[in-house]
């Protein structure tokens, strides 16, 4: 990767529609933040500073889903300017909670319910989608919000020109490391088997089922989890909704197949 004059990589941190939790978490890295700002040239970080520059970037970290026409343009512009684009957080990676409406008509009807027929003057809304619906994403750092340790290690590796090493296994692995009892064995609907690890199985550590807030793990056996929950007596629609709560778009393919099989 090329380096700029002062020998530091140029980074931009951007927030699209979401709760700003990932940007906030970066700010919550209070002690490490100093190091980050020293190791890299932070060109744009709206939450932290005001003298932001929209120029060429080595790395763009993008949080949030694309929910307006303006954001569509913004993400295309970011892609043009940045050599590497990293989607951070569930909304940028898989659409987040706001992408749970899988059908565009359903989304439109819901939009009308909330805002009525008022015409928005400032920017046109669109159905919420993860950023890779519009641009090529180089790396994904999921989480709701992202995990501090994972964020720091990912950034560190990218800064040194290496690809990040993210967990490519499910929450169940971390859960075993933490020696928790399996909640599925107790007939509690836990999404751990299909959810990407990295949170440290935090919910199960607190005796609570995984809600799937980090999105689906690569090559997750969603069909098997679906079947398992069906066998435990959970309703078809309930399971489907539960799986779509945090990553509707990530589940869309599977639901498509499901529909096909049913029909």
């Amino acid at each position: 990767m090329t380096k700029n004059n002062n020998n530091k990589l140029k980074i931009g941190i951007y927030e699209l529609t979401g709760c700003a939790g990932d940007a906030l978490l970066i700010l919550d890295c209070e002690k490490e933040l100093v190091d980050i700002f020293q190791a890299a040239d932070i060109q744009s970080f709206l939450m932290a500073k005001s003298d932001n520059i929209d120029g060429e970037l080595d790395i763009a970290l993008v949080e949030g889903s694309v929910s307006t026409e303006k954001e569509k343009k913004e993400i295309l512009d970011i892609r043009k300017r940045a050599k590497t684009v990293v989607a951070i957080g569930i909304c940028a990676c898989f659409g987040g909670i706001q992408a749970a409406f899988l059908d565009e008509k359903e989304w439109e009807a819901n939009f009308k319910e909330v805002y009525g027929n008022i015409k928005m003057k400032h920017t046109k809304p669109v159905q919420s989608k993860p950023i890779d619906e519009y641009i090529k994403v180089d790396y994904y750092l999921p989480g709701c919000p992202i995990d501090k340790e994972q964020f720091l290690s990912t950034l560190n590796r990218i800064l040194r020109g290496n690809p990040p090493e993210l967990y490519r296994f499910s929450v169940c692995v971390e859960c075993k490391w933490n020696e928790n009892d399996c909640l599925l064995n107790k007939d509690i609907p836990c999404l751990g088997p299909i959810t990407r690890a990295g949170c440290g199985s935090i919910c199960i550590n607190h005796n609570l089922p995984c809600v799937g807030c980090w999105g689906p793990v690569e090559e997750a056996n969603i069909a098997s989890e679906f079947q398992l929950l069906r066998e435990k007596g959970f309703d078809h629609d309930f399971i489907k909704k539960k799986m779509a709560n945090f990553s509707g778009t990530g589940m869309a393919d599977f639901f498509g197949k499901l529909k096909g099989e049913k029909g």
Binding site: T17, V66, I97, V114, P125, C144, K241, N245
Partner: peptide, 30 residues
Amino acid sequence: VNEGPRLVERLTLGKTPEEDVNIVPRICAI
């Protein structure tokens, strides 16, 4: 407010109270 619309209130419908307890705080990280 330029924040895009998320329709969070609508997202909660048809779900169990427990699921909404997971979803709703995602309105705002702060």
